[in-house]
């Protein structure tokens, strides 16, 4: 066989076999990966809405906007907030959960907030992701800090040094959490209170 033709054929065969194997592996794993991602966020929702037995998504922005292009959809998803509805065993809506984001010391801080349906007070918050300094900023994950947000409503200022005690040595991280909670609260309260 011609030398350069052989090179092309061998490379093409290797590339095709590998693409074939990968598409099989991808086909079986991608389903599990998607399920995992959905379940991970759902289980976090149960953490901030302890009484809920079922969780529903009440507004998925990308679907609503009818965007088909995957890149645009991802951008939209990053900008808009998903709202979850916590439902108890009597099929009553007992609260809402939403994600808020703000810039901290090391990068974006993502917070999940649970709000009570009846009183409109924060039940609990959970840090979903952060890259704050271990030992300093990472204390935003501690129960003692997170509990400072419990009982706040959308009318409260929710700001460090006003109604939230500061975290000494980690002012920027603490402020990021407060910003994320307040911003998410303001953005979403209008939506789930307004029209469902």
């Amino acid at each position: 066989m011609n030398e350069s033709l052989r090179m092309v054929v061998v490379l093409a065969v290797i590339a095709m076999v590998s693409a074939g194997i990968l598409s099989v592996v991808y086909g079986t794993t991608s389903v599990i990966i998607e399920e995992n991602a959905a379940r991970a966020l759902e289980s976090s929702v149960y953490d901030v809405l302890p009484q809920a037995t079922k969780v529903d998504i009440i507004r998925r922005s990308a679907d609503e906007l009818g965007v088909d292009d995957p890149k645009e959809m991802r951008e939209q998803e990053q900008r808009t907030t998903l709202i979850y509805q916590g439902i108890n065993d009597q099929d009553q809506v007992i609260g809402y959960a939403f994600v808020g984001e703000a810039n901290g010391y090391g990068g974006v801080v993502r917070i999940l907030v649970g709000v009570d349906e009846a009183t409109d007070e924060i039940l609990n918050i959970k840090v979903l992701a952060h890259t704050e300094t271990p030992g300093l900023g990472s204390r935003i994950e501690d129960e003692s800090f997170r509990s400072r947000f419990v009982g706040k409503t959308v009318e409260d200022p929710i700001a460090v040094n006003q109604d939230i005690d500061n975290l000494s040595g980690a002012t920027i991280s603490a402020r990021a959490v407060a910003d994320a909670v307040r911003q998410g609260f303001v953005d979403t309260a209008a939506v789930y209170r307004g029209g469902e």
Partner: peptide, 16 residues
């Protein structure tokens, strides 16, 4: 990424 892999649904070939 945005003109070949995403439209063809081949994100798993990204690395290669």
């Amino acid at each position: 990424q945005w003109f070949i892999l995403e439209p063809l649904g081949l994100p798993f070939l990204q690395n290669m």
